[in-house]
Computed example of a mutant assay.
Amino acid sequence: MNRYRHPWAARRWLARLLPVLALGMGATATRAQADWSQVVQRWADAAVHSSGLAEKSPLRLQVDVGALDPSLRLAPCARAEPYLPAGARLWGRSRLGLRCVDGPTRWNVFIPVTVQAFGPAWVLAGNVPAGAVLTAADAVESEVDWAAAPAPVLADPALWVGQVAARPLQAGQALRQSMVKAPQLFSMGAQVRVSAQGPGFAISTAGQALSAGSAGQNVRVRMTNGKIIEGIVLEDGTISALL
C-alpha cells in the first residue's frame, strides 16, 4: 500500500523534506555568490594594478571586496561582468557593479569594495587648536591609509608647515588638504598695496580691502578713486591685479 496514500501523510512527508531542500538550495546560492565575489575580486585587483598607481607612487595598495547581500537569490548565469558604476572610483570605500550578460534572466547587483593605499604621511603628534600655525614639530612621519578620507594627504612638509589649522585637529590624524589653510595676511577694511600692470605700464598704489585675505585668494579692493577691482593676494600681502 502506498504509504502516502492519504493527503495528511503526504503533507507530513513534505514538511520534513522542505527544510532539507531549502538548506541545499541555500548552500548552492551561497556558493554561487562566493564565486561571483571572487570574480569581482580578480577584476578589482587587475583594475587597480593596471592603473599604475603603485608604480608611480610610494603607495602599497590593497583591495578588499565584500560579499553580496545573502538575501539575494540570483538566477543561474553563465557569465557575469564586473564594472565600475558611474560616479564611483576605486579609492577608499566604494562599490562595484556585477551584471549577468549570459543567462536566461539578466540581473544587476552591487558589491561593496574597499581600496586602501598605504604610504608615508605626516601624523599629528598632539592636539592643535583651530587657527594655530603649524610647525615642523607638530607632526611625525608615519604610514597611513591615504584613501581613508576624501581629502588628499599632505605628504610634503612644505605644504603644511606655516599653514593654519582650519579646525581643531586631534593627535594621530594624518594631515590632509582640508585640515589647513593659508594664514590671514590682512583683515577686511585694511589698507593694502595693489600692483597692476597692462600693455606698456605698471603701477603700484593703495586701496582698501573689502574682505580678509590670505595668500592665493581672490579679493576685491576699493581704489582711492572709488573704483572696485579684483586681484590675487601674493605671499607678501600685496595684491596683483590685471587692469
Rank of each mutant, 00 (worst) to 15 (best):
residue 200 G to N: 14
residue 125 A to R: 14
residue 233 V to G: 11
residue 129 P to D: 13
residue 130 A to E: 06
residue 44 A to M: 08
residue 176 R to T: 09
residue 92 G to P: 03
residue 34 A to Y: 07
residue 192 V to A: 04
residue 217 Q to D: 14
residue 241 A to T: 13
residue 79 R to T: 02
residue 21 L to S: 10
residue 50 S to E: 14
residue 71 S to F: 00
residue 156 D to A: 08
residue 64 D to Q: 10
residue 175 L to M: 01
residue 63 V to W: 00
residue 213 G to W: 03
residue 134 L to H: 12
residue 175 L to T: 01
residue 229 I to R: 15
residue 150 P to Y: 06
residue 76 P to D: 03
residue 52 G to W: 03
residue 229 I to G: 06
residue 127 N to R: 13
residue 100 C to M: 07
residue 241 A to G: 11
residue 158 A to R: 04
residue 191 Q to I: 02
residue 181 K to P: 01
residue 110 F to K: 12
residue 48 V to N: 06
residue 139 A to M: 06
residue 105 T to D: 13
residue 194 V to S: 07
residue 137 A to Q: 11
residue 223 M to I: 09
residue 167 R to L: 09
residue 208 Q to S: 05
residue 46 A to T: 11
residue 83 Y to V: 00
residue 51 S to M: 04
residue 196 A to M: 14
residue 226 G to T: 11
residue 169 L to F: 12
residue 135 T to P: 00
residue 225 N to I: 05
residue 139 A to S: 04
residue 204 S to A: 12
residue 59 L to Y: 08
residue 200 G to K: 13
residue 163 Q to L: 05
residue 143 E to W: 08
residue 3 R to S: 03
residue 152 P to Y: 08
residue 202 A to L: 08
residue 234 L to Y: 07
residue 156 D to T: 10
residue 109 V to N: 11
residue 120 P to H: 03
residue 80 A to S: 14
residue 219 V to I: 13
residue 3 R to F: 10
